[in-house]
């Protein structure tokens, strides 16, 4: 018995050794392939993050050497009225934009899902606005949303509705910005469309046999089956909304003219951070602002992940 056992053991060891060697080769190859990304991450993301964390404890104007001020920048954050204002604006905008963008994208994706052979064409059409530079989008929507002569209000007037001053009335600035950013919803549409295509047809057929109508099928089949995609876009859109910058800066803060007529209803957190860093050269304070935003985003994302466990269905899960 000993000999065969020994042979088997030797074979197992040899096979194990070969597998380990193969695994090691694969691991090395894998790291080789992702090494460029890792280097990029270390140099352009992690390094700057560490640097900005250190700077957040300094008084630094990017010209002279930074001077350590301890927690002073973080103390100032608590006292700065504009931080609270900018944070409030950003959260309100995110609360409006994220559900709106998901709903619009899902509606468009469902329409596209019903289109037959021409779906590729329409998919491209819906995605094209995403390719438009956001600065151009901001400038364009300043014209479209003008309260007096803008296209949107002219259209509303045809239906007897006197539209609001989207770009100048503080109550309507954020809804106006939501409309502006919905222009770039094409990326989310493509994700939802891919998810919708993956929903097995037999689930719908079974639901129909059980007497389910369109709304019930949507609620009980479609939504659970694409919940993974919905959750992914929820996370991504929330982070994007909390970092809102380009469109708002172009419309309300960019250039001499717009900065003169800046509207505090559009003072988003990252815009305030940018002003502190590049207009007033308060790099240390801006770094502290950046880290506060990072922590806020981490907390919100963690809550979303936690809550999602109850609602998100992943195919292949054990329970």
């Amino acid at each position: 018995m000993a000999a065969p056992t020994s042979v088997a053991a030797t074979r197992r060891m040899t096979a194990g050794g070969a597998r380990r060697t193969r695994n090691w080769r694969e691991i090395r190859a894998a790291y080789g392939f992702i090494s460029l990304w890792i280097i990029g991450f270390l140099v352009f993301t992690l390094g700057p993050m560490i640097a900005s964390f250190v700077l957040s404890f300094t008084d630094y104007n990017a010209i002279d050497s930074p001077q350590n001020v301890g927690l002073e920048n973080y103390r100032q954050l608590a006292e700065d009225q504009k931080v609270a204002k900018a944070l409030g604006n950003t959260l309100v905008y995110a609360a409006m934009y994220v559900p709106a963008s998901m709903a619009v994208a899902l509606a468009l994706a469902m329409v596209l899902n019903r289109v037959g052979r021409a779906s590729g064409f329409f998919r491209t059409i819906f995605y094209l606005p995403k390719m438009t530079p956001t600065v151009a989008v901001g400038a364009l929507f300043l014209l479209l949303l003008n309260g007096q002569e803008g296209l949107l209000n002219r259209t509303l007037r045809l239906f007897g509705i006197d539209g609001p001053n989207w770009t100048t009335d503080t109550h309507w600035v954020k809804p106006g910005l939501v409309i502006t950013t919905l222009w770039s919803v094409g990326g989310t549409v493509v994700i939802y469309l891919a998810a919708l295509r993956q929903v097995p047809k037999d689930l719908y057929e079974a639901a129909e046999l059980d007497g389910a109508g369109s709304w019930t099928k949507f609620r009980k089949v479609t939504i659970p089956m694409i919940s993974g995609a919905l959750f992914f876009t929820l996370i991504v859109q929330t982070i994007a909304a909390l970092q809102m910058f380009n469109e708002a800066y172009t419309m309300f803060f960019g250039g001499q003219q717009n900065s003169t007529y800046s509207n505090e209803a559009a003072l988003f957190y990252v815009i305030y951070l940018f002003q502190q860093a590049f207009r007033f050269l308060h790099m240390g304070y801006a770094s502290a602002l950046a880290w506060l935003l990072f922590v806020i985003i981490m907390i919100i994302t963690a809550v979303q992940v936690r809550v999602s466990r109850r609602f998100v269905y992943y195919e292949g899960e054990r329970d």
Binding site: V54, N68, A286, S287
Partner: peptide, 16 residues
């Protein structure tokens, strides 16, 4: 404490 400016510069610019 004084931190070397050049050492932090690229990082701070990138982060902001």
């Amino acid at each position: 404490m004084t931190i070397t400016r050049r050492g932090l510069l690229a990082g701070s610019m990138g982060a902001l």
